[in-house]
Design a protein around this nucleic acid. Structure first.
Length: 780
DNA sequence: TACCAGAGGAG
DNA sequence: AAATCCTCTGGTA
């Protein structure tokens, strides 16, 4: 089956034309272009209350807009009401923004709808076309590239080399100065020829998907500037078109027509949870091996030296970058393929889409199928008003602090999605006219009423997503049980169920999101109200059965049973509890058994650790899990947790801490274990308080380092300065051993480990006093 | 010492 | 540019 990779439109002979780019089944053929000329742009005009569709049509005819091709009366459903609206068909896509406001302002028109949907995206919905469908059996030809540039602080500096790797096995570094003998390096006459070679190769290799790492904000723009300098077009499009650099909010997006460009940097930021997102960090976290890296400051001197060995290092590094980018792409693309299919939009858009927009595009596509008219996005005033409307969220149980043994963990399976489905929570069916009598509607603890007679649109779509995920998981399980060699098939199914899970979990947040078309604070607040209700009632039942709820958060319950039960009795109690709870729940909802833990330590809400019988440690919220704490504190805290939870040996834990304190004082700890990662969430000038990471970044900026909002600052606390902020220095400006041992002892190590030891009844002085007093023989 | 801004995690 | 709940640090008055 051929795969729809991308869509675009152009105006040919004054007529809008949709171009569809397909990858054919054969790998040796280039893309197929299908042009569609019979689709016209349109939007809807809703008649005023005192008016109707016919009157509005007459008024529109009277107004005689030259842009209008056709006016049609169509019957559609607008939230609760079915009504006649006017479909305004225009000659060209640009006509829509030209006339929508003027029509919306007409006396006979209440408002216009669906007038801010891009023409190509509109077409994919209306034609019911699904990008990336069939990709499991017809793999795209993927290429990645990366550039190295001459950066000595000047402007208009050149590209030194372009590295390239594709799934056909071609690996190249193109340059124009080479004394090395590396076989993958090809030397061109000059920079312009090098760029030309790159563009030609993408075309010759018939590449379907282009990958970069931060290409949106760096590589594409840089190459474009160099092309402009040489007066050559930057052509990469499958239709021979130039790369389009688009503004997307704060950032840029580099669009390549027909060969979707996926920038893996924003994708990885969404998919992985890491302290930093450099190519090297992401590579190491996925593949568990270090990728060769180079000091960026070496690039210019190495290049200028002309030394064969130094140039070879640059080429090697550059080649590794392109290869790593391709390898990461092969890992994360399956999820993007599936999201693209599910949402029904091209990969260029989907790979850059927020979760809110993902849900919205799915809803918009389904709305078309069900004859619904899409609500508008709120204007700024409306949006701000919505954002002010706060509502109550989840319930968190105050933990019974300290150590507990034999902990059973239960949680509600997809709590919020299941509530939305079970109680038909929908912005259109809320407070419906058909369920006014008592007992006719689902009534949430927040007081909102939801229709029992007609399934709502939003819960309907969500139910389909959940059902699809259930089917996918069954398929995946079957495939795995067959012990098949179809690892690609497994990967695609796993990506599919994950894509469906991501989407399902976004529905609740979407309804409470101020920019949402299907916004409903009442719905979002009804969902959390039911959530609190279900968890609290479950806690009551557990207590009534003689079990003790040690902790719980939103949808989970951590309980202990009375002491002295054998394994069989525990199992029996567990199953009885589950079936009793589930019998009382609506069919869409389910309480599940998550697992059994031999021991657990509870510090505060959202901060605890569990240990299972396989010695597997699960930590939540504690410093170990946070990127804004130094490794030395995190690692020691984890060691303490293991020692306390597994070996039940607090004295040994204390010894570990004391040894680490000594190592810090003796300057035996390497700098890399002392780095603190903190993100700059705004520009340096916008901070009210100068926190350590801000101060460190400011100093680094003064010394010539480029700093942006969004950067993750890596810093060390040194001995130079008075306040902690003054002592903070970015990595790269600190020598080994140039750290403030007392800071790391008192503000990093001790707080992290004392959190644990204090929960066991130890005092900080006992640790500092080298433990003579530490006589507790375990814990009780 | 009390309070605030800011960050990052849980679910 | 999905929601709220929650803890904790370092700066500031």
């Amino acid at each position: 089956m051929k795969v729809l990779l991308d869509a675009s439109y152009s105006v040919v002979d004054g007529k809008p034309t949709i171009d569809l780019f397909y990858k054919p089944e054969s790998d040796i053929e280039d893309k197929q272009l299908v042009s569609v000329k019979d689709f016209d742009p349109y939007f809807y005009a809703i008649p005023s209350l005192g008016s109707d569709a016919d009157v509005l049509i007459d008024a529109l005819k009277e107004a005689n807009f030259p842009q209008i091709k056709k006016l049609e009366k169509v019957r559609l459903i607008d939230m609760k009401d079915e009504k006649d609206v006017v479909k305004v068909v225009t000659l060209l896509p640009k006509n829509v923004p030209e006339i929508r406001d003027r029509i919306g302002d007409m006396r006979q028109c209440r408002e216009v709808r669906e007038a801010a949907i891009r023409f190509t995206q509109r077409y994919l919905i209306d034609a019911d076309l699904t990008p990336m469908k069939g990709v499991a059996d017809n793999k795209p030809r993927i290429a990645s590239f990366d550039i190295e540039t001459y950066h000595a602080g000047g402007t208009g500096e050149p590209i030194l080399m372009i590295s390239y790797a594709d799934t056909k096995g071609l690996e190249k570094v193109w340059t124009y100065k080479n004394t090395s003998e590396l076989d993958f390096v090809e030397t061109l006459a000059d920079e312009k020829e090098m760029i030309q070679r790159f563009m030609d190769t993408v075309k010759q290799q018939k590449i379907d998907i282009l990958l970069t790492y931060n290409g949106d904000n760096f590589d594409f723009g840089f190459i474009k500037d160099r092309c402009d300098k040489y007066g050559i077009p930057f052509i990469l499009g499958a239709d021979g078109s130039q790369v389009k650099l688009e503004r997307r909010g704060m950032d840029m997006g580099a669009r390549v027509t027909g060969r979707p460009h996926v920038d893996l940097y924003p994708v990885c930021r969404r998919v992985f949870n890491l302290p930093r997102y450099t190519l090297e960090d992401v590579y190491a976290s996925i593949f568990g091996e270090e990728k060769r890296d180079i000091n960026v400051e070496d690039i210019v001197p190495f290049w200028d030296s002309g030394d064969p060995e130094k140039l070879a290092i640059l080429f090697d590094y550059s080649m590794e970058d392109a290869k790593a980018c391709l390898k990461i792409g092969l890992e994360v693309l399956p999820l993007e393929y599936e999201l693209s299919q599910l949402i029904g939009q091209p990969m260029f858009e989907v790979s850059r889409m927020s979760s809110g927009n993902k849900v919205e595009w799915l809803l918009m596509r389904r709305a078309k199928g069900e004859g619904l008219i899409v609500p508008n996005r709120p204007d700024d005033r409306e949006m701000r008003e919505r954002a002010l409307g706060k509502y109550e969220g989840a319930y968190v149980v105050e933990p019974d602090k300290g150590i507990h043994e034999n902990i059973l963990v239960f949680d509600f399976k997809s709590l919020y999605p299941s509530i939305i489905i079970a109680h038909n929570v929908d912005p259109a069916t809320i407070n419906c006219d058909c369920c006014k009598a008592e007992g006719d509607a689902w009534v949430s603890p927040s007081g909102a009423r939801f229709c029992k007679k007609k399934k709502g649109f939003v819960p309907g779509v969500l139910e389909d997503v959940i059902k699809s995920r259930t089917r996918t998981k069954i398929e995946l399980k079957k495939l795995r049980e067959l012990n098949s060699q179809d690892k690609v098939g497994e990967k695609m199914l796993d990506a599919k169920q994950l894509a469906l899970k991501i989407l399902a979990n976004s529905f609740y947040g979407y309804m409470g999101y101020a920019r949402a078309r299907w916004y409903s604070r009442e719905c979002a607040s009804a969902v959390t109200a039911w959530g609190r209700d279900y968890i609290k009632k479950t806690i009551e039942k557990a207590n009534a059965e003689g079990m003790k709820v040690v902790y719980g958060d939103t949808d989970s319950l951590l309980i202990t049973l009375p002491e002295g039960l054998d394994e069989k009795a525990v199992l029996k109690r567990k199953n009885e509890f589950l079936s009793r709870i589930n019998k009382a729940l609506p069919p869409a909802m389910e309480l599940e058994f998550e697992g059994f833990y031999t021991r657990g330590l509870f510090v505060t809400k959202k901060r605890y650790a569990l240990m299972d019988s396989n010695k597997k440690l699960t930590v939540k919220g504690l410093e170990t899990k946070r990127r804004d704490w130094a490794i030395i504190a995190k690692r020691t805290q984890e060691e303490v947790l293991r020692t306390v939870l597994w070996e039940k040996n607090p004295e040994k834990a204390a010894e570990i801490v004391k040894a680490t304190i000594q190592d810090l004082r003796d300057k035996k700890i390497p700098l890399k274990d002392l780095i603190i990662h903190t993100q700059l969430t705004k520009n340096l000038g916008q901070y009210a308080n100068v926190a350590p990471h801000v101060y460190a970044a400011k100093k680094a900026q003064k010394r010539g380092k480029t700093i942006h909002a969004g950067d993750v600052i890596q810093y060390i606390i040194t001995r130079r300065g008075k306040s902690i902020s003054e002592k903070a220095e970015m990595l790269g400006f600190v020598d080994e051993n140039d750290y403030d041992a007392e800071y790391y002892i008192n503000n990093q190590l001790l707080p992290a480990v004392m959190r644990i030891l204090e929960a066991l009844g130890y005092k900080e002085e006992e640790l500092k006093g080298l433990g003579r007093q530490m006589t507790l023989g375990g814990f009780s």
